[in-house]
């Protein structure tokens, strides 16, 4: 997994330390399991700042594997990961549509 450099149109993702669940950083510096509610960065500096917030959360031992992901706005105006691997991360295994986050209602943490 090659690390992305900060740029515009990115999200911060990680895994919840306690549960392992895939989470995304919001503008309010909280984590959500729903990428549509995540912060979409407007610039490299913005991504940098969000990454800083995520690093603090990592230092508080709340999340692991903090990383930047490419994202874009969908037709409904909400953001979503644009790469295949992150789409699979957000939803669950493509071979088990009955499982994974795709099969669940998403609460905000």
């Amino acid at each position: 997994m090659a690390d992305l450099k900060p740029a515009s149109s990115q999200m911060i993702s990680a895994n919840d330390l306690w549960t392992g669940q895939v989470v995304f950083l919001t503008r309010a510096a909280s984590w959500t399991t729903d990428p549509a509610r995540a912060a979409l960065s407007e610039s490299a500096e913005d991504s940098e700042a969000l990454l800083g917030l995520a690093a603090q959360s990592n230092a508080r031992a709340e999340v692991e594997l903090v990383h930047l992901i490419a994202a874009s706005l969908r037709d409904d105006g909400t953001p979503w990961p644009s790469r295949n691997r992150e789409d699979i991360r957000a939803l669950g295994p493509t071979v088990r549509r009955d499982l994974g986050y795709q099969a669940e209602v998403r609460p905000t943490l």
Partner: peptide, 13 residues
């Protein structure tokens, strides 16, 4: 954790 068999994968541990 790895020495104890625990990975962190795409979706979960």
């Amino acid at each position: 954790r790895q020495m104890n068999g625990v990975y962190l994968q795409l979706h979960a541990y």
